[in-house]
Design a protein around this nucleic acid. Structure first.
Lengths: 228, 228
DNA sequence: CCAAAAGTGTTATGCTTACACCCATGC
DNA sequence: GCATGGGTGTAAGCATAACACTTTTGG
């Protein structure tokens, strides 16, 4: 939400942050949206966000707004792009620094429902079936998805979408959801194992079908390393 | 320059733009710096920049500040990153949207000299021998160089560093200056010609040595296409 | 026993890299 | 004639992409 509190018609631009949080639900890439409570966009969906405080860094502001509006914390956040068209907010000139975040949703906001109580509805929406978004947030999501697709191919960022242990099938599922295309299973395994990023746990996940070996990431922090 | 005019000790952050303009001079990557006139950094060098106007877009502000302070216009500009640490400007919280620009210098500011008269000194400085820069502008330049190096490898952006006609040797020289390493001449020619981006002019540049065939870019606008 | 996911190797192709010699010119 | 950059091809190694069958389990 890029809602200026006191923007006069002609005033210096205000600074806000907006956060596009992504996760994979049901093999589809989904983004977290919140309900706008006030102003011309009341009732619309928007990305969580808001004004940057007087002595606050941009990264801190993004993390704070996200936590306050959705309860989501301890999450991978990366600056995306800054949107500053004077027309992007009908209430005044708000320059918004957009962030991308990634999370293993693990059942948060169990499907399209309410959660943030105090702050209006919160929901995951598949990026392929987005509702109309307030402000220029549709453009923010487009830019964010493009960034994610390209970064997944040259970093180890997938780890943010997974729990501590996972099967190679689950790993591939995350890639396919973000990239929006199917990958060859044999080639995928070969390359992932060749990166040396994974460590086999020697355990197995049981389920409805043949049990699958469990893996974990050796290091859970962002690294630049060619993967696909 | 990220100089707030009226920042109170605790106030909403102000919005500025800073521009890192690059060119290749003498086979070295150089960045355009201006002399700071006022404030705690008076006498230091800094990137050109300044406050964003009330109803001005960020792109417009970057182009305007660059033109006003250095006389440089009609240039490739791309948003880089937004720097917002509360400590980056000792005079107050200024969020600065940094831009990268590229230009064929063609003798502008003939070597370390003065030019912007009204706005203090203007000079090209090799990125390998930068003076101390005001604010966090050293970090901006580092980030910008990293971006340039990576973008040169998957776009046709070199064209911004060259005039309308050029030899393959000159083209390679620009790549080597930005990337900071030598390239194999035969492989470079093969790949560049294979991209289909170039058109031979059927003319030749005469000089102190064997004449070289002249080429031009078929299209002088930014495109994403794997090159090196 | 059936459905569904797990697991596994080989081959062809294209791309990348390394590398050396002659040519044309101005001085 | 010499110094300097222009111009050209090939071979080896590597990474990528395409492709099918067997295994294990739960239901």
């Amino acid at each position: 939400m890029s809602t200026p509190a006191e923007a006069a018609p002609v005033a210096a631009p205000l600074v806000a942050v907006d956060v596009a949080v992504f996760t994979v639900i049901d093999r589809r890439l989904a983004v977290l949206v919140v309900e706008v409570r006030h102003g011309p966009f009341a009732g619309w969906w928007a990305l969580p966000g808001g004004r940057v405080g007087p002595a606050e860094s941009l990264d801190d502001a993004a993390a704070r707004e996200l936590r306050e509006q959705t309860g989501v914390g301890d999450i991978y956040l990366e600056q995306l792009y800054t949107f500053g068209s004077p027309e992007r907010d009908p209430q005044g000139h708000v320059v918004s620094v957009a962030y991308v975040a990634l999370i293993d949703h693990a059942g948060r906001f169990a499907e399209p429902g309410r959660a943030g109580s105090k702050y209006g509805g919160v929901a995951w929406r598949p990026v392929t079936a987005l509702p109309a978004l307030a402000y220029d947030h549709a453009a923010v999501v487009r830019t964010a998805v493009a960034r994610l697709r390209s970064k997944l191919e040259y970093t180890n960022l997938v780890y943010t979408l997974l729990g501590r242990s996972f099967t190679l099938g689950e790993l591939q599922e995350k890639y396919e959801a973000v990239l929006g295309r199917r990958l060859d299973r044999r080639n995928f395994r070969k390359k992932m194992l060749a990166t040396g990023l994974l460590r086999g746990l020697g355990r197995v996940r049981r389920g409805p079908h043949r049990p699958a070996a469990l893996y974990t990431f050796r290091r859970r922090r962002p690294m630049v390393i060619s993967i696909l």
